[in-house]
Design a protein around this nucleic acid. Structure first.
Lengths: 186, 186
DNA sequence: TGTTGATTATACTAGACAGTATAGTCGCTA
DNA sequence: TAGCGACTATACTGTCTAGTATAATCAACA
């Protein structure tokens, strides 16, 4: 894949998170990425398509990283226990700038909007991923626990973005342990 | 206070939540409110001031409603237990359209922005309110529990907005009970 | 050297948007 | 009935933005 294309994607991702999606103009993106509008529109049909691709890339990068971490776990039933350890590691890293689909669904609340639809789909998929981990750990109401953990996750990311270094993730992790240990097993 | 001023505030609040703040134009607001820009700018110096007032009104309305509900509790130590019952009632009501400061902080991520500052202040104040309830219930780490409950709250509101009727609040409530009961007392 | 493809530079269109100016309408009250 | 204040109607300015058109540059390569 073209290096310029990549550069535009990462630049857009960064600007979207730090300035907001609607507040970030195409001119702004190309200026920071060191290219021109012509090139951007060569790779992306429209700003909307760019936004969608940024969302997909972000989610894929995170999922890939997370799955890689979890695969090093010895037993699959341990994975749900370690989930928030990795989430904390990820959120605490200096490179962390937020979760795309959370911000996007807030900025595009209209349910007919393709951007909103992709956002809520990603949120759903992440919840299903957690549910799978819960099921592997023989938890009875895997979907219920997954929903609760996803609430903690989204809340923590939100809080961490609202004021950085609030320690929200640390407490989310503690809460997650309590909820996991309190969940009934099959 | 002027009825028109009130009408503009509630109309703007509704449009901000359903379409996004940045995506809602002043022309749009006055058209729906059935008035003109001249009148809007008579009551609000700028769109930014309007946004700030909408945020303040929303939070005040919610807090007033919530405090009224909680005051009917017999013992003050019961209040923290009932908090999520009322939150569920509020989120499940047809009139619910979201929480202003969550959306606003997502759309205005710049920490220097007055709108972002007000949003994060409101989030902080709500957390302190929960902390006070926790302290009244003799919970040892009141601030820690309050942070966890606020994560559940914000996560649930977010989820409920992402797809309505997902039952997120119900599971948030269950999680809250577990966390409250698991918290150490002084 | 001449051609090709990717990229740049720059200027443009068309529409949206915040905010203002000016004149007019309507109802109330003296 | 005359005046006053709240509100409307409408047109305007200036700025920003997404997206396009056109020509120029540059590097690789045959």
């Amino acid at each position: 894949m073209s290096a310029l294309r990549e550069k535009i994607l990462t630049t857009a991702s960064h600007l979207f998170q730090t300035q907001g999606i609607n507040s970030t103009g195409v001119d702004n993106i190309v200026a920071v990425a060191g290219t021109t509008k012509m090139t951007l529109y060569k790779y992306f049909r429209s700003k909307e398509v760019l936004i969608l691709e940024v969302l997909e890339k972000n989610q894929q990068d995170f999922q890939t990283w997370l799955v890689g971490k979890l695969d090093s776990s010895r037993k699959s039933s341990d994975k749900i226990q370690q989930l928030f350890d990795y989430i904390e590691e990820w959120v605490s890293s200096p490179a962390f700038i937020g979760v795309g689909f959370i911000k996007a669904s807030a900025e595009f609340p209209n349910e007919q909007d393709p951007i909103h639809q992709l956002s809520s789909q990603q949120s759903r998929e992440f919840r299903q991923f957690i549910s799978k981990l819960a099921a592997e750990a023989s938890i009875k109401d895997a979907d219920g626990l997954a929903l609760q953990l996803s609430l903690l996750f989204e809340g923590a990311v939100q809080a961490e973005q609202m004021n950085r270094g609030s320690g929200a993730v640390k407490y989310a992790k503690k809460a997650a342990k309590i909820l996991i240990n309190g969940a009934g097993k099959t």
